[in-house]
Design a protein around this nucleic acid. Structure first.
Length: 404
DNA sequence: CGTCCACAGGAATGACGGGCGG
DNA sequence: CCGCCCGTCATTCCTGTGGACG
């Protein structure tokens, strides 16, 4: 989580471990030297960016792929190589900015970060955004640099602030005499492009690169590659990597998930003072991760969101129609002495749960008997119910035998 | 082959609270 | 510090829709 952990503490911890050599290798923000099964994407990205070496402006790039398909890793990897290459060849006109819009989610912050990558120093607050934009342009023109600006999780920025900034950034080249800007937008939201202004859409989507999910074999290669660096020799028992790979493959080929499983399994074994990691540890890691995820999600969910989720869990994790769900939801709300929200709102809540990945919905047409959504929980109902017992506004209802 | 079910989900609107610029 | 704006949660009203049934 935090990038500035205590070096001494960290080192001691690492040295005293019987399991890990370097657990950070398994963390999501680690960029490995080898990215198995992404050779095509790396090549494509390199080709598109290559003109920058001839001082030409590379096309804007839009990258789409589900979580854990290596989008960020590939981009960071390629950019790092470009920077190395530029340094070696003494090409000083190349500048790179990487920012994650989940964190940099205001116009001001994005612009100051971009300006900073050009060596411009700006206060973190105090200037108008127009002023920051002006200085950013001046810095570009003054240095004559070609900037590659990576906007990771770009959908967050657009959802919060709209596509105004993107529009201006895609147009900025025509206002510049010397500097150049190329954008790389990364997202895992399929519908992201649809919400964009058509002008931004065509400009950002000059080049599109789609990352497809990994299959189990590919995940296994990735895990093996990292495990060598992360774990001491012989720590992983037979089948551990295969099991992690197969779980993650089933859950839409998410490599981050696979690596998380492996790391948490290692931490469980370590915590218990064992010297090897077993398949059982992976199973427990999966439960632990799921529990954490549910707790995290339920913390951010609106109150009635929690209730809807609880209703699904109490029903064993599945509803064949949203109508049934709503009836049960009303009962629960009334049982709690809470005024239920409307069916329309519950419909949106279900969509939100779907987007968060905690529930999967599927539109079902039953002809004469109407159209509805089937709702399936992506988690162990009991784990979820347990998590909700901590919420004081809900927990007391479990005293009622009906809900036990 | 048209109807009509049981919802999906868009649009407009409002209450409320927090943050930000002046 | 105040007023304004914006995001979030929610309501009301609404139009759209795939296919089993008659």
């Amino acid at each position: 989580m935090s990038d500035e952990r205590d070096l001494v503490f960290d080192t001691l911890e690492r040295m005293s471990s019987d399991i890990f050599i370097d657990r950070d290798v398994l963390r999501p923000d680690y960029v490995p030297e080898v990215l198995p099964h992404r050779e095509g994407e790396i090549k494509r990205l390199t080709e598109v960016l290559a003109p920058i070496l001839r001082r030409e402006r590379p096309s804007n790039i839009f990258i789409y792929g589900l979580t854990g398909t290596g989008k960020t890793a590939v981009v960071r990897y390629v950019l790092r190589r470009f920077e190395d290459y530029a340094r070696r060849k003494r090409l000083s006109h190349i500048a790179v900015a990487y920012l994650n819009c989940r964190h940099e989610d205001t116009t001001y912050r994005v612009l100051t970060e971009l300006a900073r990558s050009l060596g411009e120093r700006l206060p973190f607050t105090g200037l108008s955004t127009a002023e920051v934009f002006k200085r950013f342009k001046e810095a570009l023109d003054a240095t004559g640099k070609s900037l590659i600006a990576v906007l990771d999780e770009i959908d967050f920025l657009v959802k919060k602030r709209g596509d105004e900034l993107l529009y201006r950034l895609t147009r900025v080249n025509s206002e510049l005499s010397k500097g150049k800007v190329s954008l790389i937008g990364i997202t895992n939201d399929v519908r992201f492009m649809e919400v964009l202004d058509p002008r931004v859409k065509s400009s950002l989507g000059e080049i599109e690169i789609v990352f497809s999910p990994y299959d189990a074999d590919q995940l296994r290669d990735i895990l093996r590659e990292r495990a060598v660096k992360a774990f001491k020799n012989g720590v992983l028992e037979e089948g551990v990597i295969d099991y992690c790979a197969s779980i993650a493959a089933r859950e839409h080929g998410d490599a981050r998930r696979a690596l998380d499983l492996l790391r948490v399994a290692g931490e469980i074994a370590e915590r218990e003072g064992r010297r090897t990691v077993s398949v059982e540890d992976v199973r427990r890691a999966r439960e632990e991760i799921e529990r954490d995820m549910i707790v995290d999600v339920s913390k951010t969910l609106p109150f009635h969101g929690k209730l809807v989720l609880l209703v699904v869990a109490l029903a064993g994790g599945r509803f064949d129609s949203t109508g049934d769900l709503y009836i049960k939801y009303r009962e629960l709300a009334k049982g709690l002495g809470v005024e239920p929200v409307t069916q329309r709102r519950v419909s949106d809540i279900i969509s939100e749960l779907d987007m968060l990945g905690i529930v999967t919905t599927k539109i079902i047409n039953r002809g004469r008997y109407g159209k509805t959504r089937e709702v399936i929980l992506n988690a162990e109902p009991n784990a979820l119910i347990k998590a909700f017992k901590d919420d004081p506004r809900i927990s007391w209802i479990f005293g009622n035998s009906r809900y036990r």
